[in-house]
């Protein structure tokens, strides 16, 4: 009934069982959803994004920008990474030379092959 299993090293995975579970949960979610109220009105303040009761800031955070804070926090690391990606063809060739040296060093010092 369950069909074949996909053996991963520490468990297994059966997409068809997952699909059945998904269908059951979907039905439950739809039942809960249908018991909700219908007070949503278009064009009122209801549709604005919630920003602690204040007007949302229009200057720097775009309402479409889902991950403003997230990418802001990661900026420290991405700025460092972006500084590598200079776009200069000489650096590309240099990276290639470095890769050869890395592989040779690792294989030569880690026992011959």
């Amino acid at each position: 009934m369950t069909g074949p299993l996909l053996i991963t090293a520490s468990g297994y995975w059966n997409p068809l069982v997952w699909l059945a579970a998904f269908a059951i949960i979907l039905v439950i979610v739809l039942i809960i959803r249908s018991s909700g109220t219908k007070r949503f009105k278009k064009g009122t303040d209801q549709t604005l994004q919630f920003f602690s009761g204040n007007r949302p800031p229009a200057d720097n955070v775009d309402p479409d920008n889902l991950y403003w804070g997230f990418s802001r926090k990661l900026e420290r690391y991405t700025a460092w990474l972006r500084s590598w990606h200079t776009g200069i063809v000489n650096d590309y060739a240099f990276a290639f030379a470095v890769l050869i040296i890395i592989i040779f060093a690792a294989l030569a010092f880690g026992g011959v092959l």
């Binding site: 972006r82 990606h85 200079t86 776009g87 200069i88 063809v89 000489n90």
Partner: peptide, 9 residues
């Protein structure tokens, strides 16, 4: 000049 490039980052 190879440093004059427009694709970067």
């Amino acid at each position: 000049d190879s440093f004059k490039r427009r694709l970067l980052g």
